[in-house]
Amino acid sequence: MTETMTWAPTEITAADGPLLDQLTERLDDLLLSNGAVVFRGFRITPAALGGVLDRILRNRLAYVHGNSPRSHVGDRVYTSTEYPAEQTISMHNELSYSARWPSRLAFYCETTPGSGGATPVVPGVAWLAALSPELRTAFAGGVRYTQNLHDGHGFGKSWQETFEASGRAEVERHLEAMDGTTWEWKRDGGLRIAQIRPATVTHPVTGAEVWFNQADQWHHAALGDETAAALAAIMPEEDLPQHVTFADGSPIDPAYVLEIRDRGLATAVDVDWQAGDLLVIDNVLVAHGRRPYAGPRRVLVAMSD
């Protein structure tokens, strides 16, 4: 993969030939060599989207164990996120906090943003290189994520919504298949999950070591001083919907959290949207986020293993 300052997603336009040829002949190689591909000018319609996704996501996945608010809009197709438009969503790899994550993501722009609303993307090797040696050393032992999911009434997401399940047995089967995961059902019907995960992973094909965790998104310091203080006033850290420490349980310095967040966003390249555009990324090689926007914006996402 190229150096940070010269890297950008590969862009394929309608002038390069029929969309079908680009999807079947070039996509796999381009994702391994560059990590992200943008298709522009093919005027992919919502009606045609399912057929396109069937070609590029060979085993489309449900958004099970996801922590972002989103709606199910089709056959394993979701809104990319439903966080408020004025918020920046920091860089992350989908489900990197879990023992199971998708290998490929596809983002489709159905409605052009009024203004802003780009999807920033960054190679994980570039994000890792942008972090200080002190921080990388501190995270060498990995991180511990704690997730508290309520039983339908409470703060954050319910376990039913998170696992797209209605019964405990189905959730337990999913958790049992995830190495490094422990859980307990709480007296109020909620579910507490703890997972120990590495801070970096190695891509199974390219061998690249990439920054691959969501410590900054799970840490209260990234919420801002006022929000963090308000949460601390109503519940202990271990009862927050999401909480993260180092793997040994010791606290993560808030300065590290802000460095991870800010350097990821600063290193990223923005993908601006027009209706009909399609962005496909290797979810291990490349992280993504969202810039704030105003006016309409509708971007959908699907994922595969």
Results as ranks from 00 to 15, higher is better:
58 R>A: 12
264 G>D: 03
183 W>P: 03
194 A>I: 12
266 A>T: 03
166 S>V: 07
48 A>K: 02
285 L>S: 05
276 G>W: 00
98 S>H: 01
279 L>V: 02
181 T>Y: 07
244 V>L: 07
75 D>F: 10
31 L>V: 08
48 A>M: 02
241 P>S: 02
39 F>L: 14
263 R>E: 07
29 D>P: 13
203 H>C: 13
236 P>K: 12
304 S>M: 01
31 L>A: 11
176 E>I: 12
157 K>P: 09
288 H>K: 10
123 P>T: 10
210 V>L: 11
121 V>C: 05
251 P>D: 10
295 G>S: 07
277 D>C: 01
88 T>G: 12
244 V>N: 01
62 A>M: 12
142 G>R: 00
248 D>C: 09
163 F>D: 00
42 F>L: 10
6 T>Y: 13
46 P>K: 13
85 A>K: 14
187 R>V: 15
94 E>V: 01
37 V>T: 13
9 P>C: 08
176 E>L: 14
143 V>G: 00
69 P>Y: 09
263 R>V: 09
68 S>A: 14
141 G>W: 00
275 A>D: 08
282 D>E: 07
139 F>Q: 03
1 M>R: 02
261 R>L: 10
16 D>K: 01
189 G>Y: 02
157 K>D: 11
138 A>K: 11
100 R>C: 06
53 L>Q: 02
4 T>A: 12
99 A>S: 12
70 R>L: 08
230 A>E: 09
122 V>Q: 08
98 S>P: 04
185 W>P: 02
196 I>T: 15
304 S>C: 03
156 G>W: 01
51 G>L: 00
74 G>S: 05
47 A>W: 04
37 V>C: 08
296 P>R: 02
83 Y>F: 10
156 G>L: 01
283 N>I: 05
147 Q>T: 12
264 G>A: 13
27 L>D: 14
252 I>T: 03
243 H>T: 01
143 V>E: 01
287 A>R: 05
39 F>Y: 14
94 E>Y: 04
289 G>Q: 04
38 V>L: 11
131 L>S: 06
181 T>V: 14
157 K>I: 06
42 F>I: 06
247 A>C: 01
284 V>G: 03
164 E>W: 09
278 L>T: 05
176 E>C: 10
240 L>W: 10
3 E>G: 06
195 Q>A: 13
268 A>S: 13
101 W>Q: 11
115 S>C: 11
152 G>R: 04
83 Y>L: 10
172 E>S: 00
232 A>K: 06
155 F>Y: 03
17 G>K: 11
230 A>L: 08
297 R>E: 02
66 G>H: 09
104 R>A: 09
150 H>R: 05
106 A>E: 13
201 V>F: 08
14 A>M: 13
